[in-house]
């Protein structure tokens, strides 16, 4: 019989049965996709961003397709902390997979309030702190672009929770390493790399940007090489686990990220294209391990033969 493969990985104290997570914003709060996908097959689910107050989001058009990718400018539309607890958490709680709540805010205290408001809730297994959204005026990016502010935010959150804190960083910086290092020093359990790249598309007839807000965040296969290079770079600079994200569509993509130093991976835009992407990747990761005679997928992490 075939080799028994262990696909489980750990992000700090958070154990995942396999390394494939649904990326924030690309899988809603799970319920939207439940008619199409067996959510309990996933390694975990990262929710759409939750902010303290309900957020209506940006004016439309909010999305546009670009070659091998898409731009979005959703603007963190979400029902707010109370709405999440009332309307979304009961369903998520019914799942057997770890639920990581993506937390966004305009100010430091808003992040703190959201985490405090979620921390005692059953069914919230960890947080992904979004300090890298390119589509909002306040917050988001500014926490990512200044290491001092990033340190203050993460250490404040560390004081209010002992659950795993994963910090999602922006690629829209000159050098991502200093922020990655201070976030680790402030007590983060893991890093998510990368959020979307700032991009633009223009309608040549109207001579206006296609997105109402002018620019948006680029995702999809177009950004995979950028994400991979940043994961590889940061993996050499920090000790905490990295969750790779950016254009992962296939099991090969996922393995590339693991070899570059990711402990787990997130699937985002690919869910829109094919909701079966995550179950397929998980199945194929198992096949790959069998073929390559790898007993534990965690043995592959950072296994790049280079440098």
């Amino acid at each position: 019989m075939g080799l028994k493969v262990d696909l489980s990985v750990s992000l700090g104290s958070l154990k995942l049965r396999n390394p494939v997570l649904a990326a924030s914003g690309c899988f809603g709060f799970g319920d939207e996709y439940s008619p199409l996908v067996d959510l309990n097959l996933l390694g975990g689910l990262i929710t759409k961003a939750v902010s303290l107050n309900p957020t209506p989001g940006n004016p439309p058009p909010r999305v546009v397709e670009t070659p091998c990718g898409m731009l979005n400018s959703i603007g963190l539309a979400n029902p707010g902390l109370k709405g999440f607890l009332r309307e979304k958490l009961p369903f998520l709680r019914s799942l057997t997979v770890p639920i990581i709540v993506n937390v966004a805010g305009g100010r430091l205290w808003e992040y703190v309030e959201v985490v405090k408001g979620l921390d005692k809730e059953d069914g919230v297994d960890g947080y992904e702190i979004n300090i890298s959204c390119p589509n909002v005026e306040k917050g988001g990016m500014e926490f990512s672009s200044d290491p001092k502010i990033a340190f203050k935010l993460v250490s404040s959150l560390r004081k209010v929770t002992s659950k795993p804190l994963i910090v999602k960083l922006s690629p829209n910086l000159g050098n991502i390493v200093p922020v990655a290092k201070v976030v680790e020093e402030a007590g983060a359990d893991a890093l998510s790399l990368i959020n979307t790249l700032i991009g633009m598309a223009i309608d040549v007839r109207t001579k206006r940007p296609i997105l109402a807000r002018g620019t948006g965040g680029l995702s999809g296969p177009a950004i995979k090489p950028v994400a991979l290079a940043l994961v590889w770079k940061v993996a050499q600079a920090v000790e905490i686990p990295i969750v790779g994200v950016g254009g992962i569509f296939t099991s090969e993509d996922a393995i590339e990220f693991i070899l570059a130093g990711s402990t787990a991976v997130q699937v985002g835009t690919a869910n829109f294209v094919d909701p079966q992407t995550m179950p397929k990747i998980i199945e194929e990761l198992r096949d790959y391990c069998v073929q390559e005679k790898i007993k534990r997928i965690s043995d592959l992490i950072g296994g790049l033969e280079y440098g």
């Binding site: 914003g25 690309c26 899988f27 809603g28 709060f29 939207e32 996709y33 008619p35 199409l36 759409k48 209506p56 989001g57 004016p59 439309p60 058009p61 909010r62 999305v63 546009v64 397709e65 898409m70 979005n72 959703i74 539309a77 835009t269 869910n271 829109f272 909701p275």
Partner: peptide
């Protein structure tokens, strides 16, 4: 409208509507 997920998850196809008496957004897809 431009649409990404089609199932109500991404809020990409939002349209400005009156929602419970206030200005808000609804999803074209869902």
């Amino acid at each position: 409208g431009n649409m990404a997920c089609g199932v109500g998850a991404c809020w990409g196809c939002a349209v400005r509507c009156k929602v419970e008496g206030k200005l808000g957004y609804r999803r074209i897809c869902k």
